[in-house]
Design a protein around this nucleic acid. Structure first.
Lengths: 261, 261
DNA sequence: TTCTGTTTTCCGGCATGCGGAAAGTGGCGT
DNA sequence: ACGCCACTTTCCGCATGCCGGAAAACAGAA
């Protein structure tokens, strides 16, 4: 049924325990002991022992039916992540301005390895439905924010992403690495990225980079509007301005250079 | 200088690694290796080894200066906590209504052991300054949300909280367990709690319980207004209504009965 | 330069995690 | 009612892999 996952049951250390947290995903927020064991590729008795520790600390919680969930404690600690809530708090006022003015969707994302993670998303009142979730992941190749983050990512990351087959969402989604490379070049020269009907057929998004004090691109903001109403170049100044404002509001300490992979 | 922390360096297991995450707090979001060791009460070499694992997984990140931070990965996983982002997502629309109508502060909190954790906080445009942070902790005895959560908490928890000395914020803060007991009783009979100048001298908060499908109190909502403008009983219906609406919006599965302590 | 407070590496001993197996639990279909 | 099956929990002996002192490599500050 559920692919039991190719597993190297070799157990460095804590890695084992962390593997148990990884099995929770946006669409699997609740798991039983044996489900966890299956998904993590670990023997049940081992999982039983480890979960006991995790529950004792509050990283996991157990409900009335005996199923495990991610615990509040973990959320609490997680909310201290500079690139998570920290970034969100800095950016929020500006994102709200952007949202109020345009009544459209605003998104804030950072890169994590070869994917992106949405840190905030404000739904405009009359906005296009988008398929994103705060804390959710997405490919770097299709969205506006993704193109920005990829355009300014280290070359190794770009190569790794381009080497793999590219996910298609609509029949306008770029699928050859040639197309993507061109889009990345455009992004760098213009200073902002455009994603026209790449993810859904009714959305157009324009995204701009957020820099830290050291000049590194640490995040990307985007505005997602209905396709065909306003041209991208008309939206761009608005997004660029917000991105600059956020950059200026970031704390002087570099928000950390994460070792990806 | 920094209290090196009374430590039982006895090392069950994973507990050790989790202890390393605990050393991060809202006002200490960035720590060096040896600071972590000191605060966790563990030998440096042990910490060095463990952090390596944590960094490899993404629970911690390391910045240019070699300092450690909570990693984005942890935030990501943490955002799957039903009592964290999950709850927030259910409640947000209602909280926003409440905020828009009153232009005051709205707060959503859950109980964790003998304290409360703020899950969301919306700052009204003309609102009283409050000293709370999303993801932050607070005593159960002073705020409106706290009284609600305590009023419906299991007796052991109530006793434990009342047995300890009660923290004072203003000279109107209740400090005897007798006073608090009375307030809890009032809360239960009225169905909502009032905190009048208990935390700051210019704020009045009214809070109501949020129930899950099983009828358990799982969270509390509150409205924080300027003291002296509107009487509490005039605000109560608004808060009660919102709390009911949120209760109805919660998923049928009980959001988990956390083993506290 | 020297000195103090780091971070990193190394390694031998033994504590501790490991996981198979068997006992305990519960839900479901017949 | 019964027995079946899949799940959870407990137990225990083996050897794995963690543990942390000590010393080396490093980085600033005086």
């Amino acid at each position: 049924m559920t692919p039991p996952r190719a597993l190297e049951r070799t157990g460095p250390v804590v890695a084992r325990a962390l593997r148990l947290l990884e099995v929770f995903t946006p669409d699997r927020r609740s798991l039983t002991l044996s489900e966890m064991a299956r998904h993590a590729g670990l023997p049940v008795s081992t999982v039983h022992r480890l979960t006991a520790d995790l529950v004792a600390w509050g990283a996991l919680e157990r409900d009335a039916h005996g199923a495990y969930h991610i615990g509040l404690r973990l959320w609490e600690i997680g909310s201290l992540a500079p690139r998570g809530l920290g970034l969100r708090e800095c950016a929020l006022p500006f994102l709200e301005d952007l949202s109020q003015v345009t009544r459209e969707n605003v998104q804030l994302a950072v890169r994590e390895g070869t994917e992106l993670v949405f840190v905030e998303r404000i739904a405009g009142t009359s906005a296009v439905p988008v398929l994103t979730r705060v804390g959710g992941r997405f490919a770097l190749t299709a969205t506006g924010v993704g193109l920005v983050l990829l355009a300014y990512a280290p070359p190794e990351v770009q190569e790794e992403v381009l080497a793999r087959p590219i996910k298609r969402y609509t029949d306008r989604t770029m699928i050859t690495s040639r197309e993507v490379r061109a889009a990345l070049a455009d992004t760098r020269t213009r200073g902002y990225a455009v994603s026209d009907r790449q993810v859904t057929m009714d959305a157009l998004s324009v995204a701009a980079p957020v820099h830290d004090a050291a000049g590194e691109v640490v995040a990307a903001v985007s505005l997602v509007v209905h396709h065909g109403v306003t041209p991208a170049h008309a939206i761009a100044p608005l997004v660029l301005t917000s991105a600059r404002a956020i950059s200026r509001a970031l704390p002087p300490t570099p928000p950390s250079v994460a070792p990806p992979e």
